[in-house]
Structures are given as C-alpha cells and as structure tokens.
Amino acid sequence: MTMHPILRLIAGTMVLISLLLTYFVHENFVWFTVFIAINLIQSSFTLWCPMITFLKRLGIKE
C-alpha cells in the first residue's frame, strides 16, 4: 500500500473513532472530529500534512 491510500485510511479511521468516542464517552470528543476536519482542510490549501511527514519517516513509499 502506498502513502495516499494509507493516509485516507488513517483519516477515515480517526473520524470514526472520534465519532464513537463522542457518542459513547463524552460529547466534547466532537472537538477531536473538528480538529481532524480542520487539518484536512488546511492540508488541501497548503499541500502539507503532518501525517505524511510521519509516514515518510516510517519509510512508506509515495
């Protein structure tokens, strides 16, 4: 698997986890979902995502 499918998998998983935490644990976990959304929007404009930097350091191929 290459970097961009892994990145989409991680983003989708994090959104689902944050929504489950919001529903089952506490409603303030919705802010985790907001943070993920803001990061995705930011990366679309700047073309830089912190997770890509992390995945590159792990040796994942582009």
Rank of each mutant, 00 (worst) to 15 (best):
K61L: 11
T46H: 02
K61V: 12
T53E: 13
M3F: 10
A37H: 05
T53G: 09
W48N: 13
I36W: 14
H4T: 07
M51R: 04
F32G: 05
L16V: 10
N28P: 01
W31H: 11
R8N: 12
K56D: 11
A11I: 10
K56G: 07
W31F: 15
T22P: 01
I38M: 09
T13N: 04
S44M: 10
V25D: 12
E27G: 09
I36S: 02
F35S: 13
F29M: 08
P50L: 01
T53H: 09
T2I: 06
F29A: 09
M51P: 02
I41H: 01
I41L: 15
K56W: 11
W31I: 15
C49K: 02
F45H: 05
P50C: 03
S18Q: 11
F54H: 01
E27S: 12
H26N: 11
G59T: 02
I6E: 08
C49P: 00
T33K: 11
S18L: 04
V25W: 07
L21C: 05
F24E: 12
R57K: 15
K56T: 02
M51A: 12
M14A: 14
S44I: 04
L21S: 04
L16S: 07
Q42S: 08
K61A: 09
R8D: 12
A37Y: 10
Y23A: 09
S18F: 11
C49G: 00
L58D: 03
V15F: 07
W31D: 04
E27C: 05
L40Y: 07
L20W: 07
H4V: 01
E62Q: 07
L40K: 00
S18R: 01
N39Q: 14
V25I: 13
K61R: 09
I17G: 01
A11E: 13
V30M: 15
F54S: 01
V34K: 12
F45V: 05
L19K: 08
L58I: 04
S43R: 07
L7A: 09
A11M: 07
F45M: 08
L58C: 13
I17L: 11
R57W: 01
Y23H: 13
R8F: 12
P5E: 14
Q42E: 08
T33Y: 12
L9F: 14
Q42H: 07
F32D: 06
T13C: 12
G12M: 01
I41P: 03
I36N: 06
F32L: 14
M51K: 03
V25E: 15
E62F: 08
M51T: 08
L19P: 02
L55E: 01
F32Y: 11
L9Y: 15
F45I: 05
I36F: 13
I36H: 04
N28H: 09
G12Q: 10
I38W: 05
V25R: 03
E62L: 11
N39K: 14
M14S: 14
M1C: 04
C49W: 04
V30A: 15
S43H: 04
M51D: 05
H4P: 00
K61P: 06
L55R: 03
H4Y: 15
N39T: 06
L20R: 03
